[in-house]
Design a protein around this nucleic acid. Structure first.
Length: 880
RNA sequence: GGGCCCUUAGCUCAGCUGGUUCAGAGCACCUGCCUUACAAGCAGGGGGUCGCAGGUUCGAACCCUGCAGGGCCCACCA
């Protein structure tokens, strides 16, 4: 029996429920998952930065994951959502450096251990805040499984994976041009370089030709690098410069002699067609240099200032030198001209510093072979990417993947397990532990006296993504213990929900690691969310200050409302222009449901006969519910999450509240019959279950208010309603009746007939739709529906389908509106008829179109003619 | 420079294999209502030449070509 309470407020109060139910769910261990006989449904969270705070992107992302997890839990799966955080090597280190700087401490003044102590202190202070914030959202993670990428077991996993790949010959150390971030003083991967359009200048400089009075003129955006020039290049087919080939040019200021060479790379159209070649500071120049065995002169120090090759500019910053050297060149007559020039400059994603291409020794993963099965997986559907368009991007990228530079010159992160025992390039070993390293080093060097102290650990750490790519495996300890119960049960996981921005950084590499370490992909579906933008379409960011604080939104609107707001208009992969009004819509929806509950809970059922309208209303809504259940299923299968929510929104607001409840609601002053009350509650509970994944708090609250539940019972662990067959014909029949109701309401509104007045209505019936007549009477406030075989003279009439409805009202009637409407309808139908007849008069249509189509078209013709006739008669009737 | 995607109502988007009245939904908007669950609500209503131009077809929002506009990814001509 419902618990009656007349004093329930008319607004849903999220504050009074959210904390209560979250605590209840936690205490009862509903989020907990352990391997058992059920089928697993697993999601690993994209681990947020350990010291990060929740932003709108997280809200979107984690709401989606929670919806999927809660739905799976209610569908009978062993649902497991693994939470955790990422150490975010460079981002966190940058933050710690900035923090120390603020208190006057420079990183360079600290030892590695001292710095790491600060970093850990910072992590302990700020770490995990974001996970607490996720709880406010209702995230049903298995918190006992929380992992951090620097947890001991994950660190060991990273080392093991590194050693394993090294032993398989897939990790090597080599000289490469890398992207050097002079501010963070580390290399970064290509993926972390942002090319930003910048206004600069293109400088035309002339270099004297040795043994002549003439010059060769080149164009460059980076005049300061001339100090590292080791050649001038022209295109082999460029006749303009054939006379220069083989001659020697002199680098101004440095007074160095450099050869003039030919290379296909040089673009004849650009600038003067002559290229200054600086192998130390440009990727392409480096390649030309390799082809021609050019000298490499590195003019920079690690912080971007010039070294001794910079001569009198030594110690000065590269950008300052650019200005000064241009002035010097001008004074000395080497500057021909400078023109404005806009080009794209590589900058560091983390620090924003202009990237310096630099030649150095780094660690790399050989990707070509590793990437093959990962590429194949997306092509053959073993991993489905939603939306599909991103699969193309993925394939394109994976097909021409380059080796992955995994070393970073940072301290915060996983140290590279390499140990050096000599100065030679090959004098190192890679091992799981220092002890093993020593053993190997003795063997490899042949020097059995080698001591632990003789080994030098590689000073670099690994790229953050090198631990992240193992995440779906390492959280279940599948790297260290490949056969443990957890990994074999939970792996591969099902869905991964993340942002498209990290498709290459992370998703592609996880799939790669999945095959490399387990021979299987880590998940079967990747759902890529959109990017949350503000109303003007700008990306939400801290610096723009255009991102609302999610926790504040939850405070103001409630977690359920924020969840609904985020999901209402977010098809996969589409950017979401977020606006607070979306949360408002979510809150209104919560109140709507709350008030429906208030109505139902205050009913005092009476043992009496169930009215016909109620019986019919229930039979309709049961079918409608099954139809919605079917649609819900289809939407989830296709990952149309917002469509799924919108379907429920309409089911609840339009069908359940506006129609169903109005049908079964007892007339004023009457009591409801017990049967209808019970059935309504049952239907309401089904709706609560269907909605629970989207609005967990509200639904749990109402579910508990409906009845006294036993200890340990909760909506969150109930079973989703089972789909049954639905009678589509019955639903169509109802839809017709609903149209009749609308037409009658419209009529009453225009004629100003108040609801308490309950006229009878006569139907001149030309198509039979009598099934829901009691419902029509109830909703349109009619005393009865009568059937006649002819029109009723003098009575105002309206038309629905082929039927005419006559309303006997006494007051003065203005039929002009109705006539105009009917006339417009006739015009429309005549236009439609013309098109149909054009088709039917077209011999090739009759000849070539399939028979059913022709038959249907003929039927349409007949129906339309009939409708026009009826309407014409209708108008005639009105005119009298 | 190479590749991918998009353009449907004021906004955000559905629209399956070309074919049933297919031109839809939510929000916004307009009109009337404080009606006994809910004004954070109820009832009713208006609104689109499906970016443009061709083509294929009996038939095109849907397929093809071109054009215009927008977005994303890769590459990085100094």
């Amino acid at each position: 029996m419902p618990i009656k309470n007349p004093n329930i407020p008319s607004r849903y109060d999220p504050k009074a429920t959210e904390y209560k139910w979250y605590k209840y769910w936690l205490e009862n261990g509903y989020f907990r998952s352990r391997p058992d006989g059920r089928k697993p449904y697993t999601i690993v969270i994209p681990p947020p930065n350990v010291t990060g705070v929740l932003h709108m992107g997280h809200i979107l992302n984690n709401t989606l994951q929670d919806v999927l997890i809660r739905r799976a839990r209610m569908a009978g799966y062993n649902a497991c959502w693994v939470p955790g955080t990422d150490h975010a090597s460079i981002a966190t280190e940058a933050r710690v450096v900035a923090h120390l700087q603020a208190s006057g401490i420079k990183k360079s003044d600290l030892s590695r251990d001292e710095f790491l102590r600060h970093a850990w202190a910072w992590t302990h202070k700020h770490g995990g805040i974001i996970l607490e914030q996720l709880k406010r959202l209702g995230a049903s993670c298995d918190w006992a499984r929380t992992r951090f990428t620097l947890d001991e077991s994950l660190c060991e996993s990273v080392v093991k994976a590194f050693v394993d790949l090294y032993e398989r010959g897939l990790i090597y150390r080599g000289h490469r041009m890398v992207n050097w971030d002079p501010q963070a003083q580390t290399t970064i991967s290509n993926e972390e370089v942002n090319y930003i359009e910048k206004k600069g200048k293109l400088y035309y400089l002339r270099y004297p030709i040795k043994g002549s009075e003439s010059f060769v003129t080149i164009a460059t955006t980076r005049p300061e690098t001339m100090l590292g020039d080791t050649a001038i290049g022209v295109h082999p087919d460029d006749a303009r410069y054939h006379h220069l080939v083989g001659k020697t040019a002199i680098v101004p200021i440095a007074n160095r002699k450099i050869p003039i060479i030919q290379d296909e790379y040089v673009d004849r159209e650009f600038g003067t067609g002559c290229l200054k070649i600086t192998p130390a500071h440009d990727v392409n120049d480096k390649e030309i240099g390799d082809r021609h065995q050019l000298e490499i002169i590195d003019i920079f120090q690690d912080d971007g200032s010039l070294n001794a090759h910079g001569r009198h500019y030594e110690g000065m910053d590269r950008f300052a030198v650019r200005q000064l050297i241009v002035e010097e060149l001008q004074e000395k007559g080497f500057l021909v001209k400078e023109v404005d020039y806009t080009h794209k400059v590589g900058t560091s994603e983390r620090t924003g510093a202009v990237i310096e291409p630099k030649r150095s020794i780094q660690w790399f993963v050989k990707m070509a072979d590793l990437a093959k099965p990962a590429l194949e997986a997306v092509s053959n559907g073993a991993v489905a990417i939603v939306p599909e368009k991103f699969a193309n991007t993925y394939r394109h990228w994976m097909a021409r993947i380059h080796d992955w530079n995994i070393s970073r010159q940072l301290w915060w992160g996983h140290p590279i397990p390499a140990y050096y025992y000599g100065e030679g390039i090959a004098d190192f070993v890679v091992a799981q532990t220092p002890e093993k390293a020593l053993e190997q080093a003795r063997r490899k060097s042949g020097n059995l006296d080698l001591q632990a102290g003789d080994l030098k650990r590689d000073p670099d750490v690994l790229d953050t993504w090198f631990s992240a790519w193992l995440w779906p495996i390492s959280v279940f300890d599948g790297i260290r213990k490949p056969d443990n119960e957890e990994i074999t049960y939970y792996y591969p996981t099902q869905d991964l929900v993340t942002a498209p921005e990290i498709l290459f950084f992370w998703v592609a590499r996880m799939i790669t690691a999945g095959y490399a370490f387990r021979g299987r992909p880590p998940f079967s579906h990747v759902y890529l969310t959109g990017i949350v933008r503000d109303k003007q379409g700008r990306k939400m960011s801290k610096s723009l200050g255009n991102s609302p604080d999610p926790i504040e939104l939850i405070e103001r609107y409630g977690a359920d409302a924020v969840r609904v707001g985020m999901l209402l208009t977010t098809p996969a992969g589409n950017d979401l222009p977020f606006d607070e009004s979306l949360c408002l819509q979510g809150r209104n929806f919560a109140n709507k449901i709350w008030n429906a509950f208030r109505l139902v809970q205050r009913w005092e059922p009476l043992e009496k006969r169930q009215p016909d309208y109620a019986t019919l209303g229930i039979s309709w809504f049961e079918n409608r519910l099954n139809q919605a259940l079917h649609q819900l299923e289809k939407d989830f299968e296709a990952y149309r999450i917002s469509a799924a929510l919108m379907g429920l929104y309409k089911l609840i607001w339009d069908d359940f509240c506006a129609l169903y409840l109005e049908i079964v609601k007892p007339p004023y002053g009457e009591k409801i019959d017990a049967k209808t009350a019970t059935q309504t509650r049952r239907l309401f509970e089904s709706i609560l279950k269907m909605l629970h994944p989207f609005m967990p708090f509200l639904t749990e609250e109402i579910w508990h208010r409906f009845a006294k539940r036993n200890e340990g019972e909760a909506l969150i662990i109930t079973e989703m309603p089972k789909q049954k067959a639905c009678d589509e014909k019955l639903i169509r029949e109802f839809d017709f009746s609903a149209r009749v109701v609308s037409a009658l309401r419209h009529f009453r509104m225009k004629k100003n007939i108040p609801n308490p007045e309950r006229p009878p209505v006569s139907v001149w019936e030309r198509e039979a739709h009598r099934h829901f007549d009691p419902v029509i009477c109830k909703l349109a406030h009619l005393s009865e529906l009568r059937y006649t075989n002819a029109k009723i003279e003098g009575a105002p009439a309206l038309q629905v389908g082929l039927n005419t409805y006559f309303i006997p009202v006494e007051r003065a009637v203005d039929n002009r509106g109705e006539i105009a409407k009917a006339t417009a309808e006739i015009n429309h139908l005549q236009g439609f008829l013309k098109q149909i007849e054009k088709k039917l008069n077209n011999e090739s249509f009759i000849a070539k179109a399939p028979e059913e189509i022709v038959a249907v078209t003929r039927k349409k013709q007949a129906d339309t003619r009939e409708k026009i006739k009826t309407l014409q008669r209708h108008i005639e009737g009105l005119k009298r």
